[in-house]
């Protein structure tokens, strides 16, 4: 069953279009920076961009910071929101259940396919950004390849690579919260669009409340609160506090939402 869902994911043109588009914005930013040589001043604009001009090795992290607030969640919400609702809308859900695929198995397979998509998206964005970054900005060979950390002493190239890998893992994990919301809504509605939009509405609401002082008491529990904490991986030494909280918070969201998704889907009348 998992194999079936992966085949569906891979054979669907949309998967590759979304991943392609996901790479477009960071690549455009890199080209603009390289052409104009106008990096934002440190502390303004997207994270890392002020540093990439001197060393392209940091550009994958910058690319993640560029797609993380909107592009990546949008694509994850589209794919996860389509998981069950898309089958319902196409009418294929009733044939899968009558096959019988088993509701829990189907849900697990859908979840695995979404996880693979998230991982694939993050890896492709990072790898593309690495090649684009090093090609356009070089590897900082002038100062021995050292990479400017966000704070503290510079990182060695080896450290930079490791921390980029950790950042990929953290970003992918952060996306699981989005995926869980979208998957849950996907079992509630028969419209994939509604499921994806619903998940995005949650994120927009969360981002909005984060800027509101009056919502201070809620902020530690908002799903997007610790997303950008992956920047802390590029401090020297790493500032773990927000990262750990981010992982804990996402884990709770994912666990609760997946339980709700399972409870809803296994007791639902398939009338689509």
């Amino acid at each position: 069953m998992i194999g079936v869902e992966l085949r569906k994911l891979v054979r669907r043109p949309r998967t590759w279009v979304v991943i392609g588009l996901l790479n477009a914005l960071p690549t455009l930013v890199a080209v603009l920076l390289a052409v104009t040589d106008l990096a934002p001043r440190p502390g303004t604009g997207p994270a890392f961009l002020s540093a990439v001009l001197s060393n392209g090795v940091l550009f994958p992290a910058a690319a993640l910071a560029i797609v993380l607030p909107l592009f990546l969640p949008v694509s994850v919400a589209i794919v996860a929101g389509d998981a069950v609702a898309g089958e319902a809308q196409a009418g294929t859900l009733r044939y899968l259940i009558a096959r019988p695929a088993g509701r829990t198995r189907l849900l697990v397979a859908k979840l695995v396919a979404v996880l693979v998509f998230v991982a694939l998206a993050v890896v492709v964005v990072t790898v593309t950004a690495y090649f684009v970054g090093t090609a356009l900005f070089g590897t900082g060979s002038l100062d021995g390849g050292a990479v400017g950390a966000v704070s503290g002493v510079p990182l060695s190239p080896r450290q930079a690579v490791w921390r980029t890998v950790l950042a990929m893992a953290y970003v992918a994990f952060s996306m699981l919260g989005v995926a869980a919301v979208a998957l849950f809504l996907s079992t509630v509605t028969d419209s994939p669009l509604a499921a994806a939009m619903g998940a995005l509405a949650v994120l927009v609401a969360s981002s909005l409340l984060l800027t509101l002082e009056a919502a201070g008491a809620l902020q530690p529990y908002l799903p997007t609160r610790y997303w950008l904490a992956f920047v802390d991986l590029f401090r020297q030494p790493i500032l773990w506090r927000d990262l750990v909280r981010g992982i804990g918070l996402q884990a709770v969201y994912v666990a609760v939402l997946l339980a709700a998704t399972w409870a809803n889907f296994t007791t639902k009348d398939i009338t689509s």
């Binding site: 069953m1 079936v4 085949r7 569906k8 054979r11 196409a90 009418g91 096959r99 019988p100």
Partner: peptide
């Protein structure tokens, strides 16, 4: 049991064999 419920349904971007193969592999 073979079933046809209300109307047939298939993945529009795939051909007949790919559709049948996916459904057969799903259970």
């Amino acid at each position: 049991v073979g079933a046809l419920v209300e109307s047939p349904a298939a993945y529009g971007h795939l051909g007949a064999r790919a559709n049948l193969s996916l459904l057969d592999a799903a259970g």
